[in-house]
Nucleic acid binder design. Sequence first.
DNA 1: GATGAATGAGACTTCATTCAT
DNA 2: AATGAATGAAGTCTCATTCAT
Lengths: 215, 215, 215, 215
Amino acid sequence: MEVNRANGERSTWRERERERAREAILHAAADTFAESGYVKTSMKEIASHAGISVGMLYNYFKGKEEIYRELIEYYFTHLQEKATAACNPDDPPVDQILCRIRSAVEFYWENRSLAMMYVNENPMRLEYMVKGWEEKNRGVISGLLSSAIERGEIVDEDPVVLAALILGAIHRLVYVLVKEGNEKDLDTIPDIIHRIVLKPLECGGRPSANGEEGR
Amino acid sequence: MEVNRANGERSTWRERERERAREAILHAAADTFAESGYVKTSMKEIASHAGISVGMLYNYFKGKEEIYRELIEYYFTHLQEKATAACNPDDPPVDQILCRIRSAVEFYWENRSLAMMYVNENPMRLEYMVKGWEEKNRGVISGLLSSAIERGEIVDEDPVVLAALILGAIHRLVYVLVKEGNEKDLDTIPDIIHRIVLKPLECGGRPSANGEEGR
Amino acid sequence: MEVNRANGERSTWRERERERAREAILHAAADTFAESGYVKTSMKEIASHAGISVGMLYNYFKGKEEIYRELIEYYFTHLQEKATAACNPDDPPVDQILCRIRSAVEFYWENRSLAMMYVNENPMRLEYMVKGWEEKNRGVISGLLSSAIERGEIVDEDPVVLAALILGAIHRLVYVLVKEGNEKDLDTIPDIIHRIVLKPLECGGRPSANGEEGR
Amino acid sequence: MEVNRANGERSTWRERERERAREAILHAAADTFAESGYVKTSMKEIASHAGISVGMLYNYFKGKEEIYRELIEYYFTHLQEKATAACNPDDPPVDQILCRIRSAVEFYWENRSLAMMYVNENPMRLEYMVKGWEEKNRGVISGLLSSAIERGEIVDEDPVVLAALILGAIHRLVYVLVKEGNEKDLDTIPDIIHRIVLKPLECGGRPSANGEEGR
DNA sequence: GATGAATGAGACTTCATTCAT
DNA sequence: AATGAATGAAGTCTCATTCAT
């Protein structure tokens, strides 16, 4: 049993080491993919950025595609986690949406390589690599929009369409700001979305921005 | 002289034939690129879609890049031409924007392969292929927004940011609708943008020319 | 018989026309080969320089190799013809050699494309195309040198070696002069060879230019 | 530290291995180029001569051109080094020239593939690959000839022309001897040049240091 | 005769993946 | 565990030659 425990512990230690190594590789890979895109990034480059040999990559990952897929999954998973942790599910849905956008933008800022990887990549490849991410992503926002509509807080528009519109707008704003080197303005995005898209949707109770309050 | 005329005619015929063949190849290529993206599309595939041999492609185009660039340039050129032809520069700027969006959506509908090529592609590649397309594209819309702001017709927001937001929203809506097979709903996009983004921006006094009610 | 003669004449006319066309092609091809070398010259280029279609080339020649071979053969044939016509076989051999060199240099001047083709080309290709040209070429000179030696007019050196030496020297001088754009100095080559190589070889009878002793 | 040393040694060993492999490839390539010339030599052939796969060539060299250029540069560099090492710069210039020729011929003998590569190649390609090699090569000899003329040791001829003549003669003699399989006679070349070209140029008074009699 | 569109073999090159050490 | 040498398939492009018109 002690032996077993010893084995167990060693195995646990091994696993931790392995996990640590995998994450180091993933970080290196994210930088490389962000810079050059999936296709133009070679395994040699990733290995070199990670400071290990090409052969070693295959010890930790099945291949290039697995590395990429894990990065994208890591990206979406942590994006959701962060937003879920930050936002209170008892708040009004619109506030939750804003909170999630704020979380997302913070996350972009903290993980610029990942964000660039996502923002610069061929949407078809993303879809191919992580089936259904798009719908999942939109699903949360459109769910919140649905509640908001049901509760009569915003006007009755198709929530799926609204979600696509909002996410598309954010995506492009991120892309433009980063491409033009204005990364520091990323944090203005939540306000922009709020002012221009969400506020005007609100029904009477909370008066629209175009009313007496403006901004 | 008759000989000359004959030569002239033959040469014209040759040129017409050549142009016809080039366009056939471009069509085939657009389909293939739309399906698989630039990188995963091989010259063999293009040739096979076009019903000719690989070597023949090089009689008409310098290489893969030229085919792609010509498609993208055709896309942007005709998109702008169509919008410019359809919209009256004396109309209020907001109406012109809506008109341009309507033209664009019609154009997407009529050139679905081209549109998919654009919507599915890696933004970095588009930028690499046609330098500055993004700014040019945004420039027209942000210019009209600037006028609208100057004329006091819409609230004072950064027109560049607004343009990015609008274009990002449209881009994503096109992507989502096409990916989910709802291409027939493409023509709802102009109304959506109008209702959700542009109308609320209008300053109280002046109702938009497009539909007295708005809703 | 008249019919026959008519046929004969027509055939003769056709043949003359064909010969004329072939020579036009050969001229165009010589220019192209001289500029770019055998490998980098394409049939398209030759056709374009000759003002005809690619297909037409194959009406007159079996292929690229045949064109090249005929040019080289034309070159050597006419070089020899010119020299033979100009030089008196009853003159002393050394004078004949000088006379041949003078003829050759004149020929280079008059057929610069051909000469460049020859001077710039891979010797292996030349040898491959026209087997034995090297020996034939050297043969004439070494034959004359042999006679000169037999007649005691020049010192007793291996005539084959001497011929190679002389021809190599001329070849390089042509190459250098043309490459540096001093084509006009080509005609100094015979004197140089005379002064530096042939004269010193002469035995006492005709005293060398280098002082009374010769060697 | 032991680890470091181990790493250091392994790394050194790797580098040595790499260097060894590169040289093996270069040797194989020299043979192949010498046999078929640059253009007709395919990477497949080189790989096959070297006993490795085609892809492997690209681990060691950027491409075909790099292999070729490295060979040619090796050739010229070592030719010059050998000559410089062998010849005493305080000797009379004419003796130095002869010494350099002797070194060169020895070098040809020791590196027959390289020499054939050079002797058989299209001069235009050589020039394209190693810009200015012709002038550099001629420069050394013509410089020595200039000194000899200034010192009144040889008659006053254009040293550039003389150098071209000498080098052309050597080049052709090497070509002829090797082509006819008389490689063993390569070492007669320095004497030939001495006897036929250099000696007669000497001004009466001063006998050459190389052999009091001439031959 | 005359054309040039069309073919297809073959060249160079890249790179994900494997495997002996 | 760790390395990087090695492979080989696949991709882009060129061009001599053929052939329907």
